[in-house]
Structures are given as C-alpha cells and as structure tokens.
Design a protein around this nucleic acid. Structure first.
Lengths: 254, 254
DNA sequence: CAGTGGTCTAGACCACCAC
DNA sequence: TGGTGGTCTAGACCACTGC
C-alpha cells in the first residue's frame, strides 16, 4: 500500500491513477474500475476516490459519466500551428478542409466541422474591434469542430457586412482557399494577424457545446485579421479545450 | 435565498461569490468572511462552502490560507505581448528591465526578477532542440519574476556553451538590450522565434516556487530563438500562472 | 433493476496562524 | 488558545445508464 501521509490521500490516489493512465495500464478509450472497487483497492472511502477522479477529470485525462463509468480520454494532444494556418489553407486550395483537418490527419484522427452562417447585430466586443456601432449588422460564421466525433473547438467569425454581403463568405462553403482567399478576392486580403490567448473556465453554453466538465479549462483565442489598408476585416473568437491543444507561433525577429 | 435546485449547491455558491468579487463587493486583497459564516449565510454546510471556494481558488480568484482566512486575488490580469518583447527590450536599452517590467508598469505594478546563472549538463528536451548531446554543458539562466512581490512566472533560458562561455551572458546582469543583444554582439542574433504553448497542472516544484495551488493551471511556454544561419541559439522554458496572463501574438500574413 | 457517478450532511480531526 | 481552512469518514439520496 503506497498510501502515506504528508500528502493528502486523494492526491496520492490521483497520482497513482495518473501514472497508470500514462503508462497505458488503462488504455485510451477504456473504462476504469468503478469507484467502490477503486476505493477498496486503495483502502480509502469512495469520497476520496471520487475527488481523485475529479482531479483527473479537470485535467482532461478521464471522463466520468453517471451510469456508464469512467473512461480514459481517447484523444491525443492536437498540435495547432497558429501562424501557418492561413498559408496552409491557401496551399491546399481545393483539397482538404484546411489547417484543422490537416492537423488532425497528422495524428490519424477524423475531423468534422459543422458550420452555420447568419446575419446578426454585432455584439459589443466585436463592434469595438471592427470599428462599427454596437448592433450594426455583421456576417457571422459559427463552427463546431470535432476530432473523431468529439467536439474540441468552437470558432465564431465576424465579418463587416459591407464586405461580406452577397459574397461567397455568406455561403456555408467558402470555396478553395477558404474565407481568407475570398477576402483577398474582394480586395481585403489580410496582411497581419493578431491573436490574444487567455485560459478560463467555460461558460455554461460553451461547456454544453463542447461536452466538457465545468472544472476543465478552455483557451479563449481572439484572432483579428487586418488588411494592408489597416482595416480590421475579420474577428474570430475561438474556444478550445485547453487540455487538448498545444499552440505554436513562429515569427521573425522585429 | 437564491439557492435552487437543478444546479449543484456548491456551484451556485461559487457563482454568487464570483459575482460578489467581480462586482468588487469584496475588493482585491480583502479577506472574505470565514467558511462557517458563509455556510450560515447561504444555508449550506461548511463542506459546500469549502468546495465552492475550491472552485474559485482553482480559477485564481481567491487564495485561502489555513489560519489566515481567504483573500481576494490582488493582481489584475497581465497582458504579455509575446511578439514585441525583443523589440521593446532593445528600444528601452539602458532603461528599465525590459518587457516584463514594462508590462507590469502599465498596470501600476512593481516588478521584481531574481536571477541565478549556472553551468549545467543539458536536460534531454533542451539537448534535442539545441542539437547537442544529453549532458553536454549549457549555460542556464533561471529567473523568478514577481508582480508586487507575488511570483507569477518562471523562466529558464539555456544557451549553447560554446556561444555563452566567458561572455556577459554568463553574468547576472546581461547589460543594455538584454541577452538577445549580447547574442547579436556575438554574431548569433536571433532571426526567428517560435513559441509552443500548453496548459497543464503544475508539478510540485513549480507550485512551490510560484506559491500556487495544485488545482490551478500554468502555461508552459517553450521559446526557441534561431539565428540567421539557422542555428538554435536559445531555448527558454517558461511557466506562467495561467489565470494571471493574457498572451498576445502578432505576425504578418505568410 | 442493479450499478454507475454526483452531491450533500454531520461530525470529526488536523495543521496552521494570530493573539 | 481560538479561529482558520484542508481533509476524511460514514452514510445517504439522487439521476442516469444499460440490461
């Protein structure tokens, strides 16, 4: 029995289970023994096991479900190349769906994107960035991206209405090269990108859409695309499961 | 009494306390009422209040301390301009301590950096990136950065020994413009940077150095600086309190 | 229906801090 | 020494799943 003092029991149980998962004693996608059995195995009460599993759950290692048991996260960490996405999208024009699909394919994962396009009044954050009035019309493209059927990312893009109106940006399929190629066709090709990254708890709506637990964390990423003329031509507000992504950025020395 | 069903009590208590903190009913730096008092106020047991505070603690909103009470996080979110740090450092050559100090000054915070320089065998990650053998000598600069006396960030920089040996890089004070200026003086000025960002639980050592709770999260950022000749001239492994930082990146369209 | 995990209570013991 | 938060037990009830 490796259960000692000085560190709390639930932390020790969490560490043991974490090690068992990392060593693939419990394989990705498999189901752990029930909490009562684990409690007996480690000589603690079920409350302690439950709390230990809560730690692993918050880290995204396991997903406990009432009635079904606790399963090990089947997905590997996705490496998202933030500064190469737009390039890739262009290079692969006509081929796959773009950067997200390519990044998943590199891991042997299936990708899926559900898109909804609509015309809406601009929310305050977006209006401020785009330099328009709150409530003025914008084009919104909302996407839910999944890996092997598991939703891992939300992305809501906002375009100024005077640019997007009546163009292919307002269609579900944006065509070869994606939205940035259409912006370029329209004379508003992005020349510079900015991303702001925070880590936070999900709001209820995000947790529901991503099928995640409230004690897990998300990246909130806001990307702004600026044209050569200095106009903000897109605001993309993304929400990613924090434990599921590695982000990488490359830039030249200033 | 706004305590209802459908959502768990501890989540409701957490939401009420979160709202009270955000509305500055409890000001930054102030101490909350004790758990027994909060339990009575909300009509729940102390266990529920304790768990609710655990939620806020994991979000970095409060810091409960045994014997002392629970205080509200006194620090605002620090906006870290990742792609402008090197520029700034050069611009302000001779003035303040560089990007970190400038970012804190913008928020009216005091900055402090504790540095230790040593000569060590290269750990595996670092050796692989620098293209040297594991255990070969590297110069290591370890820093603990604090805001208003509270440690918020660790940064360990590794330099190839053949570049750094006997230079000002091996001194505690790197001089005007910082380490990157010295690399440039030595003919190894960085031409490109890459940062990889993950979010994870802190290891015990990191949690101790940062005075944080184990259920909070850190950014793990690995920055690699590459010279014009394509040589990796620095690896900087950073650990930042995740709830305390917003990261921003700017880059030109490819 | 039996088994799962989620939550809560009541009570307890402890380490720690300030006085 | 009294108050703080951290943890644990024992037991209970519940929502949910799958048979």
């Amino acid at each position: 029995m490796p259960i000692e003092d000085a560190v709390s029991k639930y932390q020790q149980v969490a560490a043991l289970l974490r090690a068992a998962i990392r060593s693939e004693e419990f394989e990705p996608g498999s189901t752990l023994p029930g909490e009562p059995e684990l409690a007996e195995r480690y000589g603690v009460t079920r409350a302690v096991v439950n709390r230990a599993l809560g730690v692993l759950r918050s880290e995204g290692l396991v997903r406990p479900e009432r009635g079904r048991g606790t399963t090990v996260n089947p997905l590997p960490i996705i490496h998202s190349q933030r500064t190469e996405r737009q390039d890739k999208a262009r290079r692969e024009a006509g081929q796959a769906r773009g950067a997200f699909a390519a990044e998943l394919a590199a891991l042997g994962l299936e990708s899926d994107t559900q898109s909804v396009v609509s015309q809406e009044p601009a929310p305050a954050h977006v209006a401020e960035i785009l330099g328009i009035g709150v409530g003025e019309t914008v084009l919104v493209r909302r996407r839910v991206m999944s890996a092997n059927g598991i939703p891992v990312m939300l992305a809501d893009s906002y375009f100024p209405w005077d640019i997007a109106e009546g163009t292919q940006l307002a269609e579900v399929e944006t065509g070869p090269g994606g939205a940035y190629s259409r912006l370029a066709d329209l004379g508003h090709g992005p020349a510079e990108f900015t991303e702001e990254v925070t880590v936070r708890s999900p709001v209820a709506d995000e947790a529901r859409k991503l099928g995640m637990d409230i004690d897990q964390r998300v990246y909130g990423i806001t990307r702004v695309a600026t044209s050569a003329e200095g106009r903000k031509v897109e605001v993309n507000m993304m929400v990613l499961l924090a434990h599921q992504f590695k982000l990488s950025y490359t830039w030249p020395a200033g």
